[in-house]
């Protein structure tokens, strides 16, 4: 076990918890970016360089910015008076705790069967990823492309202002 892993894992989990616990919505979004950054560093630790940088580019550069924009456009930065948690929060918390205990139990049960040390670090160049995307994974790639196009058009149409009288 090593110390960097513990530090980054703690940072990620703290960022995640802050993102769901804080009162101010913008603070939540900023804490979320800490969790995203921590996850990106964890990816880098796992020798997944491309995935780590893609994580930073997509999540911090795009998703976090989208979230803060949405918060400002919906005037969500003001803390509501009647609490930030839903009135069924106890049930939600119980479900989450149950899910975590089941997952944790499953992981700890299977410790003996898990590989302790990884295979020798594979040298994954961007070239390999590109070849895999254009070869074995070309169909998923095309489907993702269609999905992204559909999402782009869909998001624009959903968020577009409906003008009175026209369509």
């Amino acid at each position: 076990m090593n110390i960097p892993f513990y530090l980054i894992a703690a940072l990620t989990v703290l960022g995640g918890s802050a993102a769901v616990l804080l009162k101010n919505t913008v603070h939540c979004a900023l804490a979320l970016t800490i969790a995203f950054a921590g996850l990106a560093v964890l990816f880098l630790q796992l020798d997944a360089q491309f995935a780590g940088f893609a994580q930073i580019l997509v999540y911090i550069g795009a998703v976090a910015i989208l979230v803060v924009f949405a918060i400002l456009l919906t005037r969500g930065s003001e803390t509501p008076k009647d609490g930030v948690f839903s009135h069924t929060w106890l049930a939600g918390l119980a479900v989450a705790a149950a899910v975590f205990s089941v997952l944790g139990w499953a992981v700890l049960q299977s410790v003996p069967g898990l590989p302790y040390t990884p295979a020798a670090a594979p040298i994954v160049t961007v070239n390999d990823i590109g070849k895999a995307l254009m070869g074995r994974y070309v169909l998923p790639l095309e489907i993702v492309a269609v999905l992204l196009t559909a999402a782009l058009i869909g998001a624009v149409i959903v968020a577009m202002h409906e003008k009175e009288g026209t369509k």
Binding site: L30, T33, Q49, F50, F53, A54, I56, L57, I60, G61, A62, A64, I65, T125, V126
Partner: peptide, 18 residues
């Protein structure tokens, strides 16, 4: 000198927006 340095450059550049 990493393999994905251009991606790295744009990734950290995206953080300035935040």
């Amino acid at each position: 000198d990493m393999d994905a340095s251009l991606l790295f450059f744009f990734a950290v550049g995206a953080s300035t927006e935040l």
